[in-house]
């Protein structure tokens, strides 16, 4: 199979059958996928309040990074952060309770889908805002816990915000252990890259003397092998690194708001993986779906979250 789907100059390439993944990695990938599908279903049923942003299609990015990040690293996530959270904590109960405002919620139902904090994991809902904060955390880590880093997930749309450049400048000047992970899915809410990004993310990073690395495949072992020495260098010889993933958002921006034409590129790593490894996929997907169904029923039956620490 060879498919090459392009937008702007960023490509997600599926040029050969995907290598078999460990059961653990695949289980986590499919846990995230089933979680996000369940959220969209719950919305349709009117069970969820507010809004949410699913990471369908992008699940492999935080799962690939999982083994490259350490417990003492800080992770800054954004509005599309369920996969980031689940890859770090594998806690679908706490996350769903947070989104549904039920007992056991990670942040007592106050933060909801896009404002989570647990230990050294934190997400915020304003684009670009987390990068300066991550730079400050990275400064503190560099001084007090050398070897640990701050990792911040951003999207392609985020690069419209001035905070990104102020933070890159600081991180480069102060040689901070800051890993910026760009999930470039070619669409900023409803606006395609071509209408919102002049030049390239690589060019912008390099303008600050910041190293940039592009990843255009969804194969987790390949991604890890390529990134491991780069991430290690961020730890041992601190300085910022921008890793840009070409990826595809399969679903809507939030829910029911996908205005992209049918031919807009949407490569699904999972369709390719299932074709290559049908038996493993079917077994693990069934387990993930069953688990998420059970959790959803259990969480929905819980009493409302109580906010005690206003």
């Amino acid at each position: 199979m060879r498919r090459l789907l392009a937008f702007q100059e960023v490509f997600l390439v599926l040029e050969r059958p995907m290598d078999r993944l460990s059961d653990d990695d695949l289980a986590l990938l499919l846990l995230i996928r089933c979680f996000e599908r369940k959220l969209l279903a719950l919305f349709e049923q009117g069970e969820l309040n507010g809004t949410t942003h699913t990471c369908l299609g992008q699940e492999y990015i935080p799962v690939a990074l999982r083994t490259l990040l350490r417990e003492d690293d800080w992770v800054f996530s954004n509005h599309r952060g369920h996969g980031h959270y689940l890859a770090r904590f594998e806690d679908p109960e706490g996350l769903l309770a947070e989104i549904m405002g039920r007992k056991g919620a990670v942040c007592e139902g106050v933060g909801g889908s896009q404002h989570l904090k647990r230990d050294r994991y934190l997400s915020t809902g304003v684009q670009g805002q987390s990068l300066p904060v991550a730079a400050g955390v990275a400064l503190r880590l560099k001084r007090h816990e050398p070897g640990a880093l701050a990792c911040a997930y951003v999207g392609d749309g985020t690069w419209g915000e001035g905070a990104v450049y102020e933070a890159l400048n600081l991180a480069a000047l102060w040689r901070l252990p800051l890993l910026v992970v760009v999930e470039h899915n070619g669409i900023a809410q409803s606006t395609p890259t071509a209408l919102q990004l002049a030049g390239t993310i690589e060019g912008r990073a390099r303008a600050f003397g910041v190293e940039h690395h592009r990843i255009g495949v969804p194969d987790i072992p390949v991604i890890r092998a390529g990134l491991a020495p780069l991430v290690e260098r961020v730890r041992t010889d601190p300085g910022p690194l921008v890793v840009e993933f070409a990826t595809h958002r399969l679903g809507p921006h939030s829910k029911g708001d996908d205005t992209r034409p049918p031919d807009f590129p949407r490569t699904d790593w999972y369709a390719a993986y299932r074709a290559a490894h049908p038996v493993q996929s079917a077994t693990i997907e069934e387990a993930a779906r069953t688990r998420i169904d059970r959790i959803a029923a259990e969480v929905a039956a819980r009493p409302p979250a109580v906010w005690t620490a206003a």
Partner: peptide, 17 residues
């Protein structure tokens, strides 16, 4: 640098950590 937003953000990061 002349980056009030980033400076306050970085200061918040120091405080968080």
């Amino acid at each position: 640098p002349l980056s009030e937003g980033a400076v306050v953000g970085a200061a918040s990061g120091l405080a968080l950590a």
